[in-house]
Design a protein around this nucleic acid. Sequence first.
DNA 1: TGGTATCTGACATACGTATGTCACGTCAAT
DNA 2: ATTGACGTGACATACGTATGTCAGATACCA
Lengths: 342, 342
Amino acid sequence: MVKPTVHDIAREAGVSLSTVDRVLNGRTDVRPKNAERVRAAVEKLGYVRDTYAANLAKQRRYRFLFVLPEGPNHFVETIAAAVHEAASAQVADRVDVEVMFVNAADPHAVVERLKQLNLATLDGVAIMVPETPQVRDAIAHIKSAGVYVVAFVSDLPNSKCDHFVGIDNFSAGKTAGALLGRFLRNEAGSILVVTNSMVARDSIERRFGLDEVLSRDFPRLKALPTVEFHDDPQRIRVTLDHAVADQADLKAIYSMGSGNAAMLDALRENAQLSHLIVVAHDLTAVTRQALLDDEIDAVIAQNVGHLVRSALRVLRAKCDKTLIFEAQEQIRIEIIVRENLY
Amino acid sequence: MVKPTVHDIAREAGVSLSTVDRVLNGRTDVRPKNAERVRAAVEKLGYVRDTYAANLAKQRRYRFLFVLPEGPNHFVETIAAAVHEAASAQVADRVDVEVMFVNAADPHAVVERLKQLNLATLDGVAIMVPETPQVRDAIAHIKSAGVYVVAFVSDLPNSKCDHFVGIDNFSAGKTAGALLGRFLRNEAGSILVVTNSMVARDSIERRFGLDEVLSRDFPRLKALPTVEFHDDPQRIRVTLDHAVADQADLKAIYSMGSGNAAMLDALRENAQLSHLIVVAHDLTAVTRQALLDDEIDAVIAQNVGHLVRSALRVLRAKCDKTLIFEAQEQIRIEIIVRENLY
DNA sequence: TGGTATCTGACATACGTATGTCACGTCAAT
DNA sequence: ATTGACGTGACATACGTATGTCAGATACCA
């Protein structure tokens, strides 16, 4: 009943400890017949390597890096805070975590920074940048150095990442649509959709999700063309004023990503907008306060603590070449109203 | 930069390894002055014990037990499955997990089973039973044997538990109320509240939460007195038929706990009820399917995987006497609609 | 001062695994 | 028969911590 060790395997297989080690760690110089006997013994006794003892012996440390977009952004700041929190909690687990900020808007700058990484000192990287051909190449380069890569928050479907840690943004958009449809029961009208930029694939996918649900389940609601306001708070204000003038049937606002603060500021300046349903993405200090103040009806969020811990667990699993526990790494699309705010 | 070891502490404090060990493990026979120097060195070098190395040396295994209510219940079955899943994932972490089912409806039977436990072979217990004076005493007994106890899913506020792993049911009820209020925008009417039994404090707390939100934010909505149907599917059917006859303004159903299947069956048999908004608790095979079939509008849930893993982490932290990472152990009140179903 | 109870340090062994060294086989090619 | 390549086993050391033994130091009291 007690956990078998390498010694038990050696005895069971009738070979020496050295041979067991050679098989287990994929070294050369083992006769196929003996390798097979070792594998059979492992199977029979149900041996699983004690990773902690192994790490102790190897003096192993896991060195991970988070690459996050720089610039003022509440969501990213929340993530960075979660990374630092997790990092301090994980020192006991032999993992060292660093954070690097890159100018995500400039693909060349991103690649430049990625190329400068000393890959010999790294075991894994979690990357949160938009996918470009250059980024794709940089990732291939990192991976070829034996460093594991996970796409973080934004998926990089065409890159050779080991995993994606984040939510399905298409479903997130559908969820927003479902909430809007239910919050506007029996009502017809239009929905203003705003985002900072549609360059990020996140926004595009969310928009698709929204449109699919609205057209299928709530055809009485019409989503207006997405308004992008590229870091210009003025623009959102003007857009809102126009919308309220042109669209007599405006019923709701869907804020798809960064820029919630600007959207809320604009909302506050136009009293006519106070009856609108507002659904926004990402739980930050700003949206949290807006929920409490009843300025936002619901927030679609992903738990940043889970995101970070999941990324770390996945990277560790890759390093240890162990299986990842899919159910645990599934990042939930959370719906947050004032009452279940945490 | 490298993690300090006990040797570093000994050197820094100018004492021997033995003395460091005596201080660290709370043994006797250490002069206060030396103990203080060791503590200062620990502080200065930022020493943290390597739990894994320590467990290796101690040949430590964590033996935990989940005490769950028996009887056919989808929610508990889901939990039991999650426990077994987590248990198999945790063998590598030196933890052995067992599950015991008790007849939660019979306090004496519960206590009888708890008293039979061989506490010498246990390190921690997660208990999910309603609180009674007998249970309270049994828990005190378990704790006095040096076994850690966490209240699991249902809180045991008057018992001497080490922790509560679960959601705040008052907030959960408020969340349900907030959803109902938003789903029934601008509408007035009554809400049917059903549950299997109000004996469990969960239901009582949820009801309080519901009432508070409705009266404060949505006074146009009136929640009818809670209908309990004590494992009698017939009862819920009759109740629904009466409600639809008596309450012309019936707008929604709030199912507060177990018994979703019976509620749904009754709903299906009365075509006049198909336009009702339905909010239910707990994500199980039944509610999952009902969400997909659009029979339920939203489910308030707690992630059973998180519940179980949190309980295990908390018990481990107690055994290791390390701090628990509150943010991670906070169980979320999840809102689930068809689109963010997982 | 002697006796004794209380502290302390040096050292050894162990946990399960990784890794290195070295000698000793076996077998085929020279 | 000699060489060399390959396969193997025995053994040692290490990782950071726990725990035990025991001799020796120190402090305290009479």
